[in-house]
Computed example of a mutant assay.
Amino acid sequence: MQRRTLKAWFLVHKWTSLVCTLFLLLLFATGLPLIFWEEIAHATGAEPEAEPMSAGMPRANVDELIDKALARYPGDVPLFFGWDEHAPLVYVNTGARPDTPPPEMHTVVLHEYTGEVLPAPQFNEGVMFFLYRLHTDVFAGLPGTLFLGAMTLLFVAAIVSGVVLYAPFMRKLPFGTLRTGRSRRLAWLDLHNLLGIVTLAWALVVGLTGAINTLAQPLEQAWQARQLGELADRYRGAPKPVRFSSLDAAIASARAAEPDKEPAYVSFPGTGYSGEHHYGVFMHGRTAITERIYKPVLVDVATGELTAQPELPLYMSVLLLSQPLHFGDYGGLPLKILWALLDLVTLLVLVSGLYLWFKRGSTESRLKELESGLVADAPAGAAR
Rank of each mutant, 00 (worst) to 15 (best):
Y132M: 13
L367W: 09
P101V: 13
Q217D: 05
L356I: 08
P74D: 02
P218W: 04
T346W: 00
P78T: 02
L22E: 04
K172M: 10
Q122M: 08
L154A: 01
V156S: 04
D84V: 11
G141T: 08
R3G: 12
G373H: 04
G328L: 01
E49V: 14
V349R: 10
T5I: 09
P239H: 05
L178Q: 09
L247K: 04
P313K: 08
P296V: 05
T136A: 04
A238L: 09
H278K: 05
E369M: 08
A46G: 12
K172E: 05
G331M: 12
G141D: 10
G126F: 10
G95R: 03
Q323V: 10
F169I: 06
P121D: 09
V117T: 12
M128H: 03
G31L: 01
V318F: 04
F123D: 12
V206I: 13
L118P: 03
A201Y: 14
K261I: 03
R286H: 14
A29S: 10
V138P: 01
G285F: 04
E369T: 05
P379H: 06
L341M: 08
F80Q: 04
D190A: 14
V351M: 02
L247Y: 09
R243A: 10
L142T: 12
S352P: 08
A71K: 15
V198A: 15
R234I: 06
V127Q: 07
D99Y: 00
S372M: 14
L215C: 09
E262P: 09
M170T: 11
L89P: 11
A46C: 07
Y265H: 05
R236K: 08
L367I: 14
G176T: 06
A232N: 00
L134V: 09
S352C: 07
P239R: 03
A203F: 10
F139P: 00
L79D: 03
L338F: 13
T107H: 02
H284Q: 11
A96Y: 00
G181Q: 10
L319E: 05
Q224D: 15
L312Y: 09
L186R: 13
